[in-house]
Nucleic acid binder design. Structure first.
Lengths: 110, 110
DNA sequence: GCATTACCTAGCCACATGGCTAACCAACTC
DNA sequence: GAGTTGGTTAGCCATGTGGCTAGGTAATGC
């Protein structure tokens, strides 16, 4: 397996990493800026970044001694679509069930 | 923390559990039916179900010796919304950036 | 009422994860 | 060129996760 969605959802399961994503929606930022609000050691934080990058949620380039990180929107869209499909399928089923119930009520009334 | 989203995304990070969710979109099913297509031991599978239930993605009731499992759509919606907000924020930023670039080009031409 | 079915509990194992410290390197700054 | 800054690597630790087997219990079927 090791699906695209596997690493995506795993990446999003951590609050630190979700906070980074939220932060990056208003623009690229260097590692130290991203790290600042989080009360954990830098190496620990770097592991989180690495996981985000591995999941393709984020890209980064190093210039001089600063590494700048940007968000990558495509995987967000992919996951959103997957969730949407499930929800649609589920709601579609409820609609069909509803119609069925209505039809049966109709028939018993005749 | 231990956010709602934490357990949700963690639950969705496993292909077996996603498959269960997909399956449940076409209606409730007993544990053994859900288990059948997966080539893992029942107790292992039960752990997956428990995690889905703990994340509020699924409910189940036992009647006689069979436990029937149904999907719970609300958390799907919540996560979908969260992802959507992030994507919107990101795209909004790109739009503003685009407008800014256009304005600057305009000004240099004058 | 004995056997089968459907699920559950307990307990084990290997590996992944999220945290840390220590030590390092390369690039700026003064 | 010495010191500071920004990031990186290595290695350790506790806990969590996903897998298993063995054994149990309560309904149902024959």
């Amino acid at each position: 397996m090791a699906n695209q969605l596997d690493s995506f959802f795993a990446a999003m399961a951590d609050p630190t990493r979700r906070a980074v994503i939220e932060r990056l929606t208003d623009g690229p930022a260097p590692v130290s800026d991203l790290h600042a609000p989080h009360d954990i050691a830098l190496p620990t934080f770097l592991k989180h970044l690495k996981k985000l990058e591995a999941a393709g949620l984020v890209r980064s380039e190093k210039a001089g001694r600063v590494r700048t990180v940007h968000i990558e929107a495509a995987p967000l869209k992919a996951a959103e679509d997957w969730l949407h499909r499930q929800r649609r399928a589920w709601e579609g089923r409820l609609d069909r069930l509803d119609a069925l119930v209505r039809r049966m009520e109709q028939e018993t009334r005749e």
